[in-house]
């Protein structure tokens, strides 16, 4: 066991998979000798060679095409899109091509691909670096979407994603890369995709969150505990497909729920979670399910992040509305 940051856990997962499966290829803009703009691929080219870990020209769409072609030659590509705001350049390769490969060939051809990409606010990035665009991906049949919030989860989920025989979008929150360390086993291990994790147990209210909002929700739960409220925090971990079983079991226990996301209200996946709860557990609900989200504007100018991004205070406020409904 070692104390790792989330980015170290990601590097570790990539190393494990490069070692275990010679078909795994890691590539993107500056992921080779440079080790990635966030050091996620640090040392990997040196260890595994330029044939396995390599840089590409600066063109996201081309990277998408490269990924598809390599998958057709039996490789297991793990490309990187430097910031997820740049996904628009490669939407066709992802949604129009990769997601559909198995279906359009009637199961004859698959696309065992994991696209890694950082996103998320709170670190004053320039324009189009921090946008939460996961909702675009979850609405595309054929893709799985994973968003880890801890070093331990990041490693196990990334290894599972790489081993999955269908395309996975693996989104890494910038603020969580180095914000804390956690015990992470040195050996390979997996965490099943599509499984949520109860990060804190409680009986009065369920909070469903993912990414950086898991930590804000845990902070909120602490604050609410001081007021004698017992709050359960469920980290969704995989946001497509959702872990319906865990979500519904939690709501049936607590009778009240809040869904928290960093994305704007009209984006993200909170609406999906609310809809699933109302379809499946409305008779358990003591109050409507409310959402904590960002406002429906374009992602803020860096200096406005603090007033725009949802935080623990917003969560406490909304949680109280639900608790006292």
């Amino acid at each position: 066991m070692a104390q790792l940051t989330m980015i170290q856990a990601i590097t570790d997962a990539l190393r494990c998979e490069l070692k275990d499966d010679e078909n795994v290829l890691v590539f993107g803009e500056d992921v080779g000798v440079n080790g990635g703009v966030f050091r996620a691929t640090e040392g990997l080219q040196k260890e595994f060679g330029e044939d396995r870990v390599f840089d590409t020209p600066l063109a996201e769409s081309g990277i998408g095409g490269l990924t598809i072609g390599l998958a057709l030659q039996g490789f297991r590509p793990v490309p990187e899109i430097q910031f997820f705001g740049f996904i628009y350049e490669v939407m066709d390769s992802v949604s129009g091509q990769l997601a559909r490969m198995r279906y359009r060939t009637g199961g004859a051809l698959g696309a065992p691909v994991t696209i890694r990409s950082p996103f998320g606010g709170g670190v004053h990035t320039p324009e189009m670096h921090s946008d939460s665009l996961e909702g675009l991906m979850t609405s595309q049949p054929g893709l799985k979407v994973v968003v880890p919030s801890t070093p331990y989860d990041a490693k196990g989920l990334l290894i599972s994603s790489i081993r999955d025989n269908d395309p996975v979008i693996f989104l890494e929150h910038l603020k969580l890369y180095r914000s804390f360390r956690e015990e992470v086993p040195e050996e390979s291990y997996t965490i099943p995709l599509g499984k949520a994790d109860v990060k804190r147990e409680g009986t009065d209210l369920s909070i469903f969150a993912y990414g950086a909002m898991v930590h804000e929700s845990l902070k909120a739960a602490e604050l609410l505990e001081k007021e004698e409220y017992s709050v359960e925090v469920v980290d969704l971990r995989t946001i497509q497909p959702l872990d319906i079983e865990t979500i519904i079991a939690s709501v049936e226990k607590t009778g009240r729920a809040v869904v928290v996301q960093e994305a704007q209200k009209q984006a993200g996946i909170a609406a999906n979670v609310v809809a699933e709860i109302t379809e499946r557990a409305i008779l358990s609900l003591e109050a409507p399910v409310l959402r904590v989200t960002a406002p429906d504007t374009i992602y803020p100018f860096p200096q406005a992040e603090a007033v725009w991004l949802p935080n623990a205070k917003d969560i406490v406020e909304t949680a109280k509305k639900v608790l006292t409904f």
Binding site: G65, G69, L70, L72, G74, F75, D92
Partner: peptide, 12 residues
């Protein structure tokens, strides 16, 4: 789309 994918198949 077939053009960028061809670059990938060829690299493979």
């Amino acid at each position: 789309a077939q053009y960028i994918q061809t670059a990938g198949v060829a690299l493979g």
